[in-house]
Design a protein around this nucleic acid. Structure first.
Lengths: 204, 204
DNA sequence: TGGCAGACTGAACGCTGTTCAGTACATTTG
DNA sequence: CAAATGTACTGAACAGCGTTCAGTCTGCCA
């Protein structure tokens, strides 16, 4: 059945076309700025067509969110090779803040928007394997097991360490540092020093 | 000129009516869920009327955001009386996380939405007096001056301490803890312990 | 070659923020 | 007191949004 296979392939290609176009537009304009009508116009199809490939906007942006997570994971390619868990932990934070600062729209979609995130939970994508959280938790546990950081509960350790990096990133991306009268260059500098100082505090 | 005064008063009352109604609806339904048309319907006026009192939706929600900040400030009424700056610092974090967790929509408006925040900057509301940031910074500086916490740069100290509380709150409000496979009761517990443990780490 | 299945369209629905010509009433003026 | 002015308000209209669906068009199979 070569024909049905070709149709399957064409369907896949169309989904990819929509996804790639949507992702590109999303990076520039964000979630709200990327309408299905504009995506349709860009790929020169009618708005209704997108609904033949995606149930609704949420489903499309769920896939975009997944890609954002994959991109984040990809940043850790070289980090995984590091033998020293503490060194790994340091880099995880640095890379996390760096990637999210450079891709604020991805950060928004992954952690700031309510919609797609709840979808993520339903679909149970937070598996143990191959995702960022798992890698992070594994590293933290290794640090604890080797007596490198002063935590006993891995979950609490993960949350606290993540919260700092996440908080710094959020403050940066949302420009909340303006509340404190700081400039963008201030916070960029402080993000690095704060992360270093925090790591030093938790090292045994 | 009693008439013009009455008109002034009526104008003020109308603005308050819009604001109070909008704020009430906003607390329940959030920024996106609160449309000008629904506000207009609730106060039994036409949609166009709101534009006689507010330039646009952003300006209205800027005022709502201001109220959110005022409410946050109000939480610190008793805290300001504390003589011990370290005790004050502890409470600032606890109250911050508590208030924002109980009023997630306010938290969103204050720190997650892009629009009104940039307006805030333009209008220069981040003054030194009477706002949360000022009180926080003053407390941190007092801690440093009295040799209570191991920081030298007040700005870095503020940012790092805030980042932790802010990160924990963000993770809670946005339910991002689900990424780590944690439940809501988990994070509630960990938010308190993480804050305590962090404070202990920075105490000299 | 006729019929069918699937891809696609584009108008339509109800929603949004926003604008503005027109109305209706209160106040000021002649 | 009547006319003119001013202002508060309306509601239809515009352009955009996500979404639906009757209808069309085309390529495949019998």
């Amino acid at each position: 059945m070569g024909i049905s296979e070709r149709k399957e392939r064409e369907k896949e290609e169309m989904r990819n076309l929509i996804m790639n176009t949507a992702f590109e537009m999303f990076l520039k304009e964000g979630y709200i700025g990327t309408s299905l009508r504009l995506i349709a116009k860009k790929i020169e199809y009618s708005p209704g067509t997108i609904y033949l490939y995606y149930k609704d906007k949420d489903e499309l942006f769920f896939d975009i969110q997944t890609r954002c997570f994959q991109n984040l994971i990809a940043q850790y390619e070289n980090t995984e090779k590091l033998a020293d868990p503490l060194e790994r932990l340091k880099q995880i934070g640095t890379i996390y803040m760096d990637y999210n600062s450079r891709s604020p729209q991805c950060f928004n979609l992954m952690f700031m928007l309510d919609g797609p995130l709840s979808e993520l939970k339903k679909r149970d994508r937070w598996g143990k394997y191959g995702n960022v959280a798992g890698f992070f938790k594994y590293t933290v546990m290794e640090c604890i097991d080797n007596g490198l950081i002063s935590y006993s509960d891995p979950d609490e350790a993960c949350l606290e360490i993540w919260a700092l990096a996440h908080g710094l990133t959020t403050i940066y991306v949302k420009k909340s540092y303006e509340v404190m009268g700081l400039t963008e260059s201030d916070i960029k500098k402080y993000m690095n020093s704060s992360w270093r100082s925090f790591i030093n505090r938790i090292i045994i």
